[in-house]
Design a protein around this nucleic acid. Structure first.
Lengths: 352, 352
DNA sequence: GTCATTTGGTATAACGATACACTTACATTG
DNA sequence: CAATGTAAGTGTATCGTTATACCAAATGAC
């Protein structure tokens, strides 16, 4: 069954292909209504749909944007991807999704494929600090928007960003824990590579210093040395919990880099027979749906990702439509502390 | 910066575009090694990459397959999508992902876009019982593979499938619960629309009947009547738990249609002060990573989705490459019961 | 009644890559 | 030495669409 083309439609409606094209592109001004209807009927009768490859070749325009996330298997990025798709569809764009596994090489290869496919805009769900692997593409004319990647001083390349204030996120959490009387606070993260993690760690340290507490580097755990993203977030949280909670003087609270890591800390604490929150307070970041369901419900920070994703998509589409080169734009929204019952007052005389 | 084309390369290497094309497509037989090298250098120097739209227009071939799932925000489908992508990449294909929200209209519109984009194969992550909305596309030549959708008698359209034996999944679970002494077993599901859910419910009923227990329809909850997929799985589980556990004679065990629903049941039971597993046994299906982390760890059924996704991708690519029309193929793998501690013996004299 | 304008279209050249038929120049064969 | 073969390419039509330029007929102005 050979595919129907615009020529088939033109023949059936007894007009030129130009007229069919005019109907397809809503340029009905130059046409009598009856001609228009005749063409439309021919289109319906044949079940004709335009060939996007041909259209793209001719116009140079692609109704697709790319989205590269570490992995949609991570619930946070699953939701993130879902919202990006929703925002893009609302603006008439489809999303092409790729998982990078936080691997620069994969990220680059994906971006390359997108470029070859005629896609001129990509949203990055998590941004590595270094973007040199994307420079040649940006030079060629690729537009990039990064989630959680405000302007870096050392960065020659203009990448827009939309994100949440990560320093603020851990500030909120750390203040909350300090207010509950905690002084020995652990910090669990995967490798501190993406910008968001650096910021979160910084927010934690700065807030401690403001409270005149010297951050104990022994209480910051950032994954096994040989790990390159192949261990899952939950497993990392569990390992980190085992490490921190086996110390002679163990922390009374643990800040996990995100909710999934926090769930791993739950499991790790359980392994060691430590109760939450009586003996250990735990916090996450993201406020994914599950945070409200686990036992005890997780104190965490909500990221306004619906707004962030919408802004990111709109920014990207504007970029695609504007002709001149504009300076990068950085949007940053505020996170919000969600207090549940995984955090409690530090009790000096608790039963160990 | 106008994009580089094959003509630019040809000019720089002082050859014809035909020769450049031959290099690009590994037809080096018709060329001296030195010419080949010269062309390759020109390609590198210009940073040339072929325009896939033009290539696709000419060859009719697209190195993409489509994947339509209910929502990647659901962790199960996040992992599913991840594995499909992995299998596809290994075979040289990219994946274009869409979320259908279990809405026939959205599913159809997505499939339509994929067709227009020149994509000739789609994997469906969850299959609605009716596929009439896809028939016209299949007629045109679209190849479809469904997850969990064995041949239906009433179905005129040849859709391949790869999946897990869902009847077997609930059989395993139900037998497990029966062995633990449970007789009043609840069943919680969203709308019984996809084939997989129908099968799971059937496995449950049949196994009860084999044990000479009359299935109590009052204990089967399939969502509020006005729900059309807009409520999250967790929330549905919670609502279902509230409903079933408020009955005068409440069930002693609940089978949730999948792990996410089961987590909702955890929350619902907690709301009512019912302890797991002492007062209520709970099971899920899928064995997502979180199943091992929640408290208590969830008894569930593991789906061999790595194998299923690989088989689905391979089947689809074979379809794309074969010229003649072959009868549909159905692959079904066996699930495996994973017993954890969310299930326990039914105790007659338990404290209510 | 002539000229200018509007209406309702059409012919054709691209877009970038590939396939096929074709051309040389040289080597081999009988 | 003519005939044949082969290595190493090249010329050009083509995929399905759209943009641009063009055109014929009808209408309007004076």
């Amino acid at each position: 069954m050979p595919r129907k083309t615009i020529t088939d439609v033109a023949r059936l409606a007894k007009v030129s292909t130009s007229s069919v094209s005019n109907v397809l592109n809503d340029r009905s001004t130059r046409m009598r209504p009856e001609t228009r209807d005749r063409i439309q009927q021919a289109i319906n009768k044949l079940g004709y749909t335009p060939n996007l490859a041909a259209r793209q070749l001719k116009t140079g325009y692609s109704p697709f944007i790319g989205l590269i996330v570490p992995s949609v298997a991570d619930p946070f990025f699953g939701i993130f991807a879902r919202l990006v798709e929703e925002a893009a569809l609302a603006r008439g764009f489809q999303v092409l999704l790729g998982n990078s596994d936080r691997d620069t090489g994969r990220e680059q290869r994906y971006a390359e494929v997108l470029w070859r496919s005629g896609i001129r805009g990509i949203i990055f769900g998590s941004s590595l600090i270094h973007s040199t692997h994307l420079e040649s593409l940006i030079d060629k004319g690729m537009h990039c928007i990064a989630f959680n990647r405000p302007h870096l001083g050392n960065d020659r390349y203009p990448i827009d960003s939309a994100g949440v204030d990560n320093v603020q996120a851990t500030r909120l959490i750390t203040k909350h824990l300090l207010a509950l009387g905690h002084r020995r606070i652990g910090f669990i993260s995967g490798p501190i590579d993406p910008v968001s993690r650096t910021d979160r760690l910084q927010g934690f340290r700065v807030t401690l210093q403001e409270a005149a507490i010297d951050p104990d580097e022994e209480l910051v755990w950032d994954g096994p040395a040989d790990n390159f993203g192949d261990t899952s977030a939950i497993e990392l949280g569990r390992q980190g919990a085992h490490y921190l909670l086996s110390k002679a003087e163990r922390p009374t609270a643990i800040i996990a880099i995100n909710d999934m890591h926090a769930f791993g800390v739950y499991a790790g604490a359980r392994d060691l027979g430590i109760t939450i929150p009586a003996e250990l307070s735990i916090t996450g970041i993201d406020n994914i749906t599950l945070a409200d369901v686990v036992e005890p419900p997780l104190t965490t920070v909500q990221q306004p990702i619906r707004d962030v994703t919408r802004l990111a998509v709109e920014r990207l589409i504007s970029r695609l439509e504007e002709s001149s080169i504009q300076p990068p734009v950085h949007v940053m929204l505020s996170p919000k502390l969600i207090v549940r019952t995984s955090t409690a007052h530090y009790q000096k005389n608790k039963t160990l």
